[in-house]
Amino acid sequence: MITEIVTFDLPEGMSREEVLAKYEATLPRWRANPDLIRKTYLYDPAGNRGGGIYLWPSVEAAKAAHDADWCRLAEETYGSAPRFDYFETPLIVENVVEAD
């Protein structure tokens, strides 16, 4: 497995509500991707950045999902080109507590 971290600069003045609305609009696309194991959305208001952390079976799957068309759409949506980092993910700890 690999972890892909995608970050991008947000337009000056974009509110948290606007960012979350844009994120929510992408939920169906990511839920429909059979290769995606997990996605965590990122928002940094102090640094005016957004992004996501993705868990994929391979770098190839990540790059297929974030192809040139996706990069163009992200740049149009958020006002800057996305940046990508990839990490091997040898272990995962899940500290999920089930409600009674």
Rank of each mutant, 00 (worst) to 15 (best):
A65M: 10
L55E: 13
G51V: 02
P28F: 03
V96C: 01
E60C: 06
D9N: 10
L36W: 01
P28E: 10
D44E: 06
Y86M: 14
F8C: 01
L36I: 14
G79N: 02
P82K: 08
V97H: 13
G52E: 09
P82T: 07
G52Y: 06
E98V: 11
G47W: 08
D69E: 14
A21D: 15
L91M: 11
E17A: 13
R49K: 15
L36T: 04
F84K: 03
S15W: 03
P57A: 04
T40Q: 14
R38P: 01
L42G: 03
E60H: 12
E60S: 13
A64L: 07
W70G: 02
G50C: 09
D85K: 14
N48W: 09
G50I: 00
E98P: 10
T40K: 07
A25T: 00
V97A: 15
E94I: 02
I53F: 02
Y86F: 15
N95C: 10
R16Q: 10
T7C: 06
L55S: 14
T7R: 11
E24R: 14
A64E: 07
S15T: 15
L27W: 07
E17I: 11
P57W: 01
L27N: 10
R16E: 15
Y23Q: 10
I2E: 12
W56S: 04
D69M: 07
L42V: 15
Y43N: 02
T40N: 09
V19W: 15
L27E: 14
D85N: 08
H66L: 12
G52P: 08
I53W: 09
S15Q: 05
D67S: 09
I2G: 00
M1F: 03
A74Y: 01
D69F: 04
E18C: 12
P45D: 05
T40L: 10
R31T: 02
S80K: 00
S80P: 06
T77S: 07
A46Q: 15
P57L: 06
E76V: 04
M14G: 12
I2R: 03
L42S: 07
